[in-house]
Nucleic acid binder design. Structure first.
Length: 358
DNA sequence: AACACGTGGTA
DNA sequence: TTACCAAGTGT
């Protein structure tokens, strides 16, 4: 076994993170079984998402849907409602699709090989390798953002991402042991998350500092090299919060694209700024619309600024499509964060923690 | 290859 | 505040 591999595993045995979806190396040695369902669910949730953000969602999902069969029996709408706030909602749609396929075509069991895993919706190179190695002990090369950082530093790879991906994968494959491949993958990811961090890496306490070419020759913080980011355009629009007594009007977004399948208050198109336009002329139905401020929300590839309009005592008969929900029950809806912001601008206590009456 | 796709935390 | 970042995938 290569020194880097051995040192990573020794470090992991003592300093691994304890996470709700993880079986510790000690538990593994004692024969604790690994549930591929929980590994899969956690890996999907962790795509581009922080561990802290995932924890409560993972616990809620596994409590409500303990097996992939339970998830297969759920409705997509229930899954989207439970996913609301976690972002990248195509993950939730693919999660449900994948569960259905596992149930209908695989007898409720996950494939244990890379091609079988990769053929499933929402599972790409990284996730297939992670599930195969962690859940099934397949010596697959697991390459995520942490591994990219650790490996480019270990070998001082100056090729910019994503071009360097092939070389990183080859290096990682060469390091991956036949035994404990899953622990090794998690060791490299934990190292990247806790020691080999993007800024101010803790090289002095790194178990691989003797092996790190970046540390020997230059500054590890210079790796990985990435292409410069593009500027975010600004898009503008208007959102309309219609109220009737204690109920608010919602509708569903189309199934695909941004926030696909999620709930929303009616909005105009989101377009590049046009001077003088407020969006009020594009109200979804006639009502006594009152300006209720504006919000800003940053997506991955653009910033959205929405003028918010509110109308009280809307005549429900004048509104077609969508549905009405009590403001107190908004927490049960599949509302993305941007929509919660829009609603909160018009109804400031919509998402406030409910106080005891009195 | 390049872009679409969310959100919240950190410095 | 702006900028970057976090266990990527699909097209």
């Amino acid at each position: 076994m290569q020194p880097i591999t051995a040192r990573s595993l020794v470090w992991y045995d003592s300093y691994h993170r304890t996470l709700p979806w993880r079986i510790s190396p000690r538990e593994r040695r004692l024969g604790a079984p690994i549930d591929p369902y929980r590994i899969w669910l956690s890996e999907i949730m962790l795509q581009q998402t922080t561990v802290e953000a995932v924890k409560s969602y993972f616990l809620a999902f596994t409590k409500r849907w303990p097996t992939v069969g339970d998830l297969g029996a759920a409705s997509q709408d229930d899954v989207l409602r439970a996913w609301a706030g976690l972002g990248y909602y195509s993950r939730a749609r693919n999660l449900k699709k994948c569960a259905d396929i596992i149930v209908s075509e695989h007898g409720g069991r996950f494939p244990s090989d890379l091609p079988g895993l990769k053929s499933l919706p929402g599972i790409g190179d990284y996730t297939a390798a992670a599930i195969a190695s962690i859940a099934f002990d397949v010596p697959a090369a697991v390459v995520d953002g942490n591994v990219e950082r650790v490996v480019t530093r270990l070998y001082a790879i100056a090729t910019p991402l994503p071009l360097a991906k092939t070389e990183i994968r080859m290096r990682m494959q060469a390091l991956t042991p036949q035994e404990r491949s899953g622990d090794f993958a998690q060791a490299m990811m934990d190292l990247g998350a806790t020691i080999c961090t993007p800024r101010r890496p803790a090289c002095a306490i790194c178990p691989l500092n003797d092996n790190c070419q970046a540390l020997q020759s230059t500054d590890p913080e210079l790796f990985p090299v990435k292409a410069p980011k593009k500027e975010k355009p600004i898009r503008v629009g208007a959102a309309f919060v219609a109220l009737a007594d204690d109920e608010i009007h919602l509708r569903s977004r189309v199934e695909t694209g941004l926030l696909g399948g999620m709930s929303e208050v009616p909005t105009t198109q989101w377009t590049a700024r046009v001077d003088g336009e407020t969006g009020l002329d594009a109200a979804p139905f006639a009502a006594n619309w009152i300006a209720a401020g504006s919000i800003s929300h940053v997506f991955t590839h653009f910033e959205l600024r929405l003028n918010i309009y509110k109308a009280d005592e809307v005549e429900k008969a004048h509104v077609s499509g969508g549905w009405w929900v009590k403001v107190a029950n908004l927490g049960d809806e599949a509302l993305p964060t941007v929509m919660k912001k829009a609603i909160a601008a018009a109804v400031p206590d919509a998402f406030a923690r409910r106080r005891k009456a009195g």
